[in-house]
Design a protein around this nucleic acid. Sequence first.
DNA 1: GCCAACGTTGGC
DNA 2: GCCAACGTTGGC
Length: 151
Amino acid sequence: MQYWLMKTEPDECSIDDFANNPSDVIRWDGVRNYQARNFMRNMHIGDEVFIYHSSCAKIGVVGIVRVTRTAYPDPAQFDANSPYFDSKSTKEKPRWDAIDLQFVRKFPQVISLDKLKSLPELAENPLVRKGNRLSVVPYTKAERDAILALV
DNA sequence: GCCAACGTTGGC
DNA sequence: GCCAACGTTGGC
């Protein structure tokens, strides 16, 4: 079991999209950063993923989902009508991957970025580093447990 | 809306 | 392979 965190703008996809349909499997697509993609390729079925809401009123970790399908070519990269279309991507050599996720739990309140920054366990984590733009971040169990202790 | 930090692109 | 220009991210 590995632990991850994935960022999303709640306007695009929020923890409520998972919580409102807990039996649904939701495709996590549109990742267009190589480092983030490579992390996605390392995910396994059952891995736990924190959902983080960014660029919104209540920034922070809002809940947990789990991986139900490992990395596969993101269909959006082939769709000329999609904002995630990539003209340099081919079916033979796809550039970008998606994974599937399913709801696990929503926290009663958002664990704010301020609180995350206050955790000594997270001091080295890219999430709380200024200028960090990585949308998929791996977590150690110690980091994950420190966050869960704030729920 | 601002802007610092970062990743990507493309000319050389 | 360097690096300036550019576009994007994301907190404030």
